[in-house]
Design a protein around this nucleic acid. Structure first.
Length: 286
DNA sequence: ATGGTTGTGCGACAA
C-alpha cells in the first residue's frame, strides 16, 4: 500500500509491476507520431499493460499502429482527427468489446472505450481545453467544454455504477485547490473556474467515481500532471495543474494499490507538456 | 496586463 504521506511523483523507472497487478497508464502525448520514441520510453519505464493516449493528432490512416505493436501493444483501439484531438487505447492484453461515443453534438475524436480481460470497462477521454476566455457567451470553445462536461454528467449519471469501470484521460480540469499552483490566481483561468470544477464534481458524484490519485494521495498534497511550455524553468517555477485523471468505480477502487505520476517525463527530449499518470489495480477481487 | 512555447503543416489556429 502506498504511504499516504508520499507524493506519487516518479522521476524515472516505476517500481516493478507486481504479479497479479493490472497497470494502466494515461498520457496526453501531444502528437503520437512526433513522440513515438517517448512512447517506447514510457512502455519501458512503466511496464504498463495498457497505455491510453490523448491528443494523438493523427487520423486513423496515419496512426503508427505497426510500430506500436512492435513495442508490445498489438491490441489497439484508436480514433483520430487531422491535426487535432485523437485518442487511443494500446494494450498488451486482448481488448474485447470496443467502441466510441460522441458528446456535445460533435464528431471530434474525444472518446474510445474497450473491455479488458476480467470484464473491466476502460474509457479514454479527451475533454475540450476550452480556449482562453472563461465566458461561454463570448467564447464558443468554453461553451463547448461546459456542454461536453454536462453531457458526461448525464451519460454517467444514467449508467450502472456497480460495474468494474475505469475512466482515464486529459479531462482539462484541475478540480481541487491543491491541483493548481495558485487556487486564487487560477479561479478565472480556464481549467479551474467554478463553472468547470462544479461540473467536474457533479460528474463524479453522479456515478460514484473515485479519484484514484486523491484516494492514495489526499489533499493538501499538491500534485500536478501538466506544466506549460510557456515557462523557461517549468520545474523551478512549478506552475503546474492536475489535468490528467484516473477514475474508478467502487468495485475497482477497492482494488487500487498504487498511483504514479511520471514527472521525469516532462524533462524528456522534446517532451509533451503533460506527463503520464499510472495506476496499479489488483486483478483479483479481495 | 502581457507574453511566454509547441504542434500541425505551411495558414493560422489550438493548446
Amino acid at each position: 500500500m502506498t504511504d499516504p504521506d508520499l507524493l506519487p511523483y516518479v522521476e524515472r523507472a516505476l517500481p516493478p509491476r507486481p504479479t497479479g497487478i493490472l497497470r494502466v497508464a494515461t498520457w496526453n502525448i501531444n502528437s503520437v507520431r512526433l513522440r513515438l520514441k517517448l512512447l517506447a520510453e514510457l512502455a519501458t519505464l512503466s511496464d504498463a499493460d495498457v497505455i491510453c493516449l490523448q491528443e494523438t493528432k493523427a487520423t486513423n490512416d496515419v496512426f503508427p499502429s505497426a510500430a506500436i505493436a512492435e513495442l508490445g501493444y498489438p491490441h489497439q483501439h484508436f480514433q483520430g482527427d487531422k491535426g487535432y484531438n485523437g485518442v487511443a487505447i494500446l494494450s498488451r492484453l486482448e481488448l474485447n468489446g470496443h467502441g466510441r461515443r460522441l458528446w456535445a453534438g460533435r464528431e471530434d475524436s474525444r472518446h474510445v472505450e474497450a473491455v479488458l480481460p476480467g470484464g473491466i470497462e476502460l474509457h479514454c477521454v479527451y475533454v475540450p481545453a476550452g480556449g482562453d476566455v472563461p465566458d461561454p457567451a463570448v467564447n464558443e470553445k468554453f461553451a463547448h467544454k461546459l456542454d461536453f462536461l454536462d453531457h458526461l454528467a448525464a451519460y454517467w449519471g444514467g449508467a450502472d455504477a456497480s460495474a468494474a469501470r475505469i475512466l482515464v484521460g486529459d479531462l482539462n480540469v484541475a478540480p481541487l485547490e491543491t491541483d493548481v499552483w495558485s487556487h486564487r490566481q487560477l479561479l478565472d483561468v480556464v481549467s479551474h473556474t467554478p463553472a468547470e470544477t462544479t461540473r467536474f464534481q457533479a460528474i463524479m458524484a453522479g456515478h460514484g467515481w473515485v479519484d484514484a490519485l486523491r484516494a492514495l494521495h489526499p489533499e493538501p498534497q499538491r500534485v500536478y500532471s501538466w506544466w506549460s511550455y510557456r515557462n523557461r524553468d517549468w520545474r523551478g517555477s512549478d506552475r503546474g495543474r492536475r489535468l490528467d485523471h484516473v477514475w474508478l468505480t467502487q468495485p475497482l477502487a477497492a482494488r487500487l494499490r498504487a498511483v504514479y505520476v511520471l514527472k521525469g517525463a516532462r524533462d524528456w527530449q522534446q517532451a509533451s507538456d503533460h506527463v503520464p499518470v499510472i495506476v496499479d489495480i489488483d486483478q483479483a477481487r479481495r
